[in-house]
Design a protein around this nucleic acid. Structure first.
Length: 799
RNA sequence: GCGACUGUGGCGGAAUCGGCAUACGCGCUAGACUAAGGAUCUAGUCCGGGUUUAACUGGGUGGGAGUUCAAAUCUCCCCAGUCGCACCA
């Protein structure tokens, strides 16, 4: 019988639909293998998307064969701008576009034949789902972690909405690449900074790649330093600066405040007022791109002086936009001798440069560039001669004693700008009451359902389109029943995806995010598979949410994803596959021509799963040929008595495949199948057949990769159960050993011959045989050294 | 600028521990089957010298040095590409 992928795949899809292979049982442990759920775009899936989904499915099926009951769900992260933009341009409600995109995605995902349990599907735009997204917000509000603030935030002029810091990439909007500007807006913020320390510390215990951990750690950006108070001359005020280099305090010759610093105008003298005001105004209109690196530094003198608390020297106070308002205290003590930026600034404005650290304790005359290394303290009164590292502790201690400074830590992480001025998102569930202030919508009134609007168009004024719906906006206060207005901002797309992994455990629960038992049974996620693009955004937010839910007793773990696997991208002509670049390859035709099994296997064979891989349409032919070869091997086999060779090949095969699976080297698992199938085909030809156990073992091992073919072959061999009801085969290393092995013989490190010996042969015997084999190369030379690494190599060193 | 990763045949890639470099697949070449082949099967395929064929022989994992009996693998320097961060005091 010929292999016909259509017949086989249709048949088994129908059978699995009736009888899912992943059944619970009291003696099975649970395992949670999760894909990052997709945004259902109108573009559909391409072969790049398949890669991650195939990977997680192969892993899930491997776990099923290892005796686990596996949770492997799928759902939709459906709020977001593309649906809304479609709504604006085509005039259809975003919900409609979203629904049809989901239908298409689902059809395409079903082509993969993954073991998804579609009964557990979640969808972030479903009011039964976002009820809980809103509920979490209310809890955060109650705990003081969600707060309102008017402040200059990142603003995308194209998307016409505020953005979180994490959504700004090199000064551009993460979504549309427009240059991000600043806008002063009333915003909802989440106090993620309260979790900075835990978000950083707990990275240690995660089985994530070092790369992602480092990206998160860098984003959180903890640095140790000191806060120091500088008194302002002739004023009753002092300015706090943050520095990581307290050791350089004696070299501080000026101070710079960010143009947004709240004390700037207070301390500016009358004659400098105009210039400073002008400068601050200009800075406020600049985008972050304009303010960024390698541009010449600019600044204006405020006319005031601060007093260096160590030596009482006067230091002029400037304002300059190279100092950031929202890091540290927004004010910096400047040490031009030991900081590049301060050095540039001092050179430009002719400010004094005092060296206080020297490599050998000797001052360099006319410093040409800042000395940023550690060294010996100079020009620092009683601290002279100290190692600068030591002074980094001694000086803050000294300041602490005098109550004019303290050691502290600082983070780059900022609070999360959580409101968006757009339509297609979860309404933020609070009302504004003139008497009671901001009041959260009571839990029993959730969800606050997103109302219909006439126009989805963003207003661009900082108001959401929801603000125009008067009968929705005007409501009554849940506390005093007086007139109140609803919050009209919506949540960012990340809100729904920050906790969805919990909902899969119990998606229809109407009383809780998910029941305690369901959460205990399934969570945290054992294996999380997805692209690297969420290294900071989604993964940081989800970790934050989980820690919050832990703190309020909703979950019993602090980290949502134990093991994270980031698959590489599929590229075409060296660039990422995407609809906008027009270089996508659709899986639909490939499934039609070669079958799901061939495409599944090729997606893995293409390269190491963690690295990017270049798509080549022709490659799938090879995998398809292999499946045909395997089919022939199994269907034409006449069972024979097991020989020693067959036994050895079988154990070796199980050993190698299992090992490579455990190490996630899935591309070499596939090539391993090819190699062993070639070997078995040779044996079959030679011996007239293969024993049953070896054939069965091969079918079970390969089942996670090509499930339809495996089921069919399993059935053709007379079995009535599913191939997935088997147990993953085991191996015996003793039985893998060859009776005789080929051992290369080197002379001076170069291969000179080969001998056949028993692995048990002793050294003398082996060396004698080896020398005989390479006699012609060593006969007129003196043997200096003989290396024998059992099972590996022989090297004879001659002179 | 800082940091991480990657660099192996014509191509994708393999090489648990420092131990036969190029497994497996694509492509290509030749042959078989065929009315036909863009199907299938068989054999060959790192580069060079050599020979009818083979034997034989030299080189070789981005470049250069080093450690070692032995280096794709370890160390140092350099080059190229990709990604991340980027005035964070």
């Amino acid at each position: 019988m010929q292999y016909n992928h259509k017949l086989v795949e249709d048949k088994w899809r129908a059978i699995w639909e009736e009888n899912p292979i992943n059944q619970p049982s009291p003696d099975k442990e649970s395992y949670y293998c999760l894909d990052m759920f997709p945004y259902p775009s109108g573009d559909g899936l391409h072969v790049g998307h398949w890669r991650g989904y195939v990977l997680s499915d192969v892993w899930s099926r491997y776990k099923i064969l290892n005796g686990y009951h596996v949770l492997h769900p799928m759902g939709w992260d459906s709020f977001g701008l593309p649906a809304e933009n479609d709504a604006i341009s085509k005039g259809i409600h975003p919900a409609e576009g979203t629904a049809s995109n989901i239908a298409n995605f689902k059809r395409q995902l079903k082509e993969i034949s993954a073991v998804y349990d579609w009964d557990l599907e979640v969808n972030t735009v479903d009011p039964d789902y976002y009820k809980w997204t809103q509920w979490i917000f209310v809890k955060m509000f109650e705990e003081g972690l969600a707060y309102e603030k008017e402040m200059p935030i990142n603003w995308c002029p194209s998307c016409k909405t505020g953005l979180a810091n994490e959504e700004v990439v090199a000064g551009e909007c993460e979504r549309c690449s427009s240059v991000v500007t600043k806008k002063n807006l009333r915003q909802w913020m989440l106090k993620i900074t309260a979790y900075a320390e835990r978000l950083l510390d707990d990275l240690d215990d995660l089985e994530w790649s070092d790369k992602v951990k480092k990206m998160q750690a860098d984003w959180i950006g903890k640095s140790y330093g000191a806060e120091i108070d500088f008194k302002v001359k002739d004023k009753d005020e002092s300015i706090k600066v943050f520095t990581t280099r307290a050791d350089t305090l004696y070299g501080s010759t000026f101070m710079v405040l960010a143009p947004e610093h709240e004390m700037l105008m207070d301390i500016t003298t009358e004659d400098q007022k105009e210039a400073v005001e002008q400068y601050a105004f200009e800075a406020s209109t600049k985008s972050s791109v304009d303010r960024m690196a390698d541009k010449e530094k600019t600044g204006v003198f405020t006319g005031s002086y601060a007093i260096n608390p160590l030596n009482n020297e006067l230091v002029p106070i400037w304002t300059a936009d190279y100092v950031l308002a929202d890091y540290g205290t927004g004010a910096v003590m400047c040490v031009p001798a030991h900081d590049e930026r301060d050095f540039d600034f001092a050179k430009k404005y002719d400010l004094p440069i005092i060296q206080v650290i020297a490599e050998d304790g000797k001052e360099i005359e006319d410093l040409m560039e800042p000395y940023v290394e550690s060294g010996i303290m100079i020009n620092s009164a009683e601290f002279n001669g100290l190692d600068s590292g030591e002074a980094q502790n001694k000086i803050p201690e000294y300041l602490e004693d005098k109550n004019i400074g303290k050691r502290t830590t600082n983070y780059k992480l900022r609070d999360w700008v959580f409101s968006r001025q757009r339509y297609w998102g979860e309404p933020i569930p609070v009302v504004h009451c003139d008497d009671c202030g901001i009041v959260a919508v009571p839990v029993e009134d959730l969800p606050v359902v997103l109302p219909e609007v006439d126009s989805y168009e963003p207003t661009g004024t900082g108001e959401s389109p929801l603000a125009a719906i008067e009968d929705w906006v005007n409501t009554t206060c849940p506390t005093c029943s007086g007139p109140a207005k609803r919050e009209t901002n919506t949540m960012p797309q990340w809100a729904g995806s920050s906790w969805y992994f919990l909902r899969y455990a119990d998606p229809k629960n109407n009383d809780k995010i998910a029941s305690e038992e369901a959460i205990k049974k399934w969570l945290p996620v054992d294996m999380y598979v997805g692209g690297i693009e969420h290294a900071v955004l989604h993964l940081l937010y989800a970790r934050f949410y989980t820690k919050f839910l832990y703190d309020i007793g909703e979950v019993d773990f602090e980290e949502p994803f134990k093991h994270l696997f980031n698959q590489g991208m599929i590229t075409k002509d060296g660039i990422k596959m995407s609809k906008s670049r027009g270089n996508t390859v659709s899986p639909d035709e490939l499934v039609e021509d070669y079958g799901c099994d061939s495409l599944r296997m090729y997606e893995l064979f293409i390269g190491p799963p963690e690295l990017d891989a270049e798509w080549d349409d022709r490659g799938i032919e090879g995998v398809n040929r292999f499946i045909n070869k395997l089919w022939r091997l199994v269907t034409t086999n006449k069972a024979v008595e097991e020989t020693r060779e067959m036994e050895r090949v079988r154990h070796k095969m199980v050993y190698e495949i299992t090992n490579r699976m455990e190490n996630f080297h899935l591309n070499t698992v596939v090539s391993g199948f090819m190699e062993h199938t070639n070997t078995l085909t040779d044996i079959q030809r030679k011996e007239g057949g293969i024993d049953d156990l070896t054939i069965d073992t091969l079918i079970i091992l390969i089942a996670p990769f090509i499930p339809h073919v495996s089921e069919e072959l399993w059935q053709l061999r007379g079995n009535e159960n599913s191939v997935f009801e088997n147990k993953w085969p085991s191996y015996d290393q003793e039985k893998m050993k060859d009776d005789e092995i080929e051992m290369p013989v080197q002379v001076n490190g170069k291969r000179a011959g080969v001998i056949n010996i028993s692995p048990e042969a002793d050294k003398e015997e082996v060396l004698a045989k080896a020398k005989e084999a390479v006699a012609s190369k060593i006969e007129d030379k003196t043997v200096v050294k003989e290396i024998y690494v059992p099972g590996r190599i022989i090297n004879i060193v001659v002179k």
